[in-house]
Nucleic acid binder design. Structure first.
Length: 520
DNA sequence: GAGGCAGTAGGATGTATAAG
DNA sequence: CTTATACATCCTACTGCCTC
């Protein structure tokens, strides 16, 4: 094997790297770096989070002390890795390759950023905020540091090429969905075909006539990282360097109508779909790109189009995705942090809670019991679940509970939260309108209702709002037992009016549900 | 091809424990 | 006591296999 780097540090024993981590198998340097790339915060450059920093340090230490660099290979280590196919395990990866791989993962921008303070110190007169200087720094770093490892993919920015003839450009008009699924048609956010135009890059006007208005363009896939620095100018080489090809052994990454002929300067992405998800590239995102198949005016540079970054997931994930907002009849695992078939899901099923509606009802009736069902859940997760559940779109179902034929009744919504009360069986009030005494009465009745949920009567129509009349016969009884406060609606309820039919009057009444925005 | 099931990896988070 | 670290747990997403 020919080693281009330092011979002392030039080899990695893949058998050793396979034993680097307790739960992970790192078979080569790409995996090694990938394990850290995935832990990076987006756009964090070289700053890992503390855990990643620590793990990174540990990996380096172990790589150097466990012979991963080929320095301390021993028989013992051979034994450790003896179950790995020998041919593969004997293959050593030059250290320069590892560094190269690592370098490749950091853009010139990321290298340049740490260098800026240095540059600032040596050239204080130069305004460092100047974009052109940043570009120069980036170019120089790329040229001097990155290129030796990366010569095949990116070339240094050609200033003259990037700045000339930027009159025409392809442009994605509508925004793609932030998440697409394999085998599903590529569509815009509003479920319409993705639209591409050719336009004047200065004025933004669509070129609706002339030879360019009927240009043939090709739809391609770009790395989600491309343009992450909001750079809106790039060379053809840079664009091509960011094309993403299908993985080995896989079908073409995108299939369908990938060549479009513009009409009057406008084209639409037709029946095209992804065949593979985007989880395997560093950014975990793709972008769509569009470029001329061949320029009708070769001397004219037509800048390619680049879409927003989006995630492509396996189509089977679509049936498992969470709903935002959830619906009442959704299965309870549609809530965040409750995995289908997971521990919490099973615990809820064990209590007969199968839907989001039942989850919310259960919370209304006895939040502490529900919390007990999910006692293994951390506070933070619990808050997340509640927050998601609270966003649920409620229907207009109402229930009323009367105690033993009395005319004092409490009206509940579909998740068993109090939304009104009546004291005479005729006029109904929202909880906001109750005085302290009335709240006590309703509180008592609510507790009765929660103990006798099967006695709740569905209301398909409503009562009227009016002054409360409390039968005198009820006063003494309720006054003594109404110390506790009425539990108000805690889930956000959209304000609105509902028509209810009073069970006593048999008439249609307008019933106003007030907005009660307390969160659980 | 769609969908169910199981296995796996990675990430996030909480908790226990050691070190200073 | 505080902080750092290791470990455990759970959720999410991906993938292969299988059945229909």
């Amino acid at each position: 094997m020919v080693h281009s780097g330092n011979q002392v540090f030039d080899a990695v024993d893949s058998r050793s790297t396979a034993n680097l981590k307790t739960n992970e198998t790192l078979s080569n340097s790409d995996d090694f770096m990938a394990s850290f790339r995935k832990r990076e915060k987006p756009d964090s450059g070289l700053s890992f989070d503390p855990r990643s920093k620590k793990r990174f340090k540990d990996e380096i230490v172990r790589k150097t002390t466990h012979g991963s660099l080929g320095i301390f290979d021993t028989e013992e280590e051979d034994d450790v890795g003896s179950d790995v196919p020998s041919q593969e395990s004997k293959r050593r990866i030059p250290y320069s390759t590892i560094i190269g791989d690592a370098m490749r993962e950091y853009s010139a921008r990321e290298f340049a950023t740490p260098l800026e303070p240095l540059l600032r110190s040596v050239a204080p007169a130069i305004p460092l905020k100047c974009n052109s200087l940043r570009r120069i720094v980036r170019e120089e770093v790329e040229r001097t540091i990155v290129s030796p490892f990366h010569s095949s993919s990116r070339t240094s920015l050609n200033q003259s090429e990037s700045s000339k003839a930027r009159v025409w450009q392809l442009h994605f008009v509508n925004k793609l969905r932030s998440t697409l699924f394999t085998s599903c048609r590529i569509e815009s956010e509003d479920c319409n075909p993705v639209t591409i135009v050719i336009r004047d890059s200065v004025s933004g006007e669509v070129i609706s006539s002339g030879p360019l208005s009927s240009l043939r363009i090709e739809i391609v896939v770009l790395n989600g990282d491309f343009g992450a620095d909001y750079q809106e100018d790039w060379t053809e080489k840079e664009f091509n360097a960011n094309l993403v090809r299908e993985r080995d052994g896989k079908r073409p990454l995108v299939t369908g109508e990938l060549v479009i002929t513009l009409r009057d300067g406008v084209g639409y992405v037709g029946d095209a779909s992804f065949t593979d998800n985007s989880s395997w590239i560093r950014s975990r995102k793709f972008r769509l790109g569009a470029r001329p198949v061949q320029s009708k005016l070769p001397e004219v540079r037509i800048r390619e189009a680049r879409s927003e970054a989006f995630v492509v997931k396996d189509h089977r994930g679509e049936s498992y995705k969470k709903h935002h907002p959830p619906n009442l009849n959704d299965e309870v695992w549609r809530l965040e942090k409750i995995s289908k078939g997971g521990t919490f899901h099973k615990a809820l099923l064990g209590k007969g809670i199968t839907t989001v509606e039942q989850f919310l009802q259960s919370y209304s009736v006895d939040p502490s019991s529900l919390r007990l069902v999910l006692r293994g859940m951390s506070k933070k997760i619990w808050e997340t679940v509640k927050e998601h559940a609270a966003a649920c779109v409620l229907d207009d179902k109402l229930y009323i509970y009367y105690k033993d034929g009395e005319r004092i009744g409490v009206v509940f919504n579909s998740i068993f939260r109090v939304v009104g009360a009546t004291f005479d069986g005729q006029s109904f009030q929202s909880p906001d309108m109750l005085n302290e005494f009335q709240k006590g009465l309703v509180g008592n009745l609510t507790r009765h209702a929660y103990k006798n949920l099967d006695e709740l009567v569905p209301l398909d129509a409503p009562p009227a709002i009016g002054p409360a009349m409390v039968p005198s016969s009820q006063l003494a009884e309720h006054y003594s037992s109404s110390r506790s406060q009425l539990q108000y609606v805690n889930f956000p309820v959209m304000p609105g009016s509902l028509l209810l039919r009073s069970p006593f009057l048999g008439e249609q009444w307008k019933f106003t549900i007030f907005s009660l925005t307390n969160v659980i």
